[in-house]
Amino acid sequence: MTAIWKRELRSFYYSPIAYVFMGVVLFLFGVYDWNVVMTGSSYYIGQVYGVMFTWCMLFLPALTMKMFSEERKNKTDQALLTAPVSVTAIVWGKFLAAFSVYLFTMLITLIPAFIIGLFSSPTWVHIFGNLLASLLYGAAILAIGVFISSLTESQIVALVGTVGVSILLMLIDSFGSFFDNEVFSTIVSWISFQARYTPFTNGIFNISSVVFFLSVVAVFNFLTARRLESRRWS
């Protein structure tokens, strides 16, 4: 697993993908931070994470789009699948590489918060709550993205598909209120990512939501592994 994690991470930083992702995300963070601190004369930068969350969920699929689609296209998956490693280890190695890039980016966003912390006392619970929520939600999106990339040989299809799913997950709560149907709204509340994300941003730590997001990651990584296995039979 570490071999694959290292290779994927290296490939992120050899290709422009990681730089473009980090550059754009951090630039937007900078803009919103500037807005709050300089234009708004406020130290309440926890809310920036809330705005940035939407952007992040749209950019994250770029990290996973080539994960398995490219391997399949270049036939490099033959080396992976005929090596003495389990398919599960391959999937987790790739997932963790994408998550590492995301985690690294999010940790950098703490720098302005700490600088502000030197001169005033921001509400740390909001900042860390938001950060944790974004990381958990992002991890789920990455796992879904890795799964979608295992379904297709085309990176574009994987990208658009994952962005689509990501948008759908953000909108699904509003669908619940469209229909006055109890069954429908119950189902929506089960799969709603948003409902589990929001309490964190208010500084409320909920262990069941952590378990929910980690379960989503585990389920989709499991599905990806099964998908790779099933290809051998087709």
Binding site: A3, S11, S15
Partner: peptide, 30 residues
């Protein structure tokens, strides 16, 4: 898989790696 060294029809090479990096990676993977 531990007993077999396999060269597929299209060699499974990562174009963005140097030969050294690639062999190091395969060494670890195997």
């Amino acid at each position: 898989k531990k007993l077999i060294g396999y060269l597929p029809e299209i060699p499974p090479l990562y174009m963005d790696m140097t030969v050294k990096e690639y062999l190091d990676f395969m060494y670890e993977l195997k």
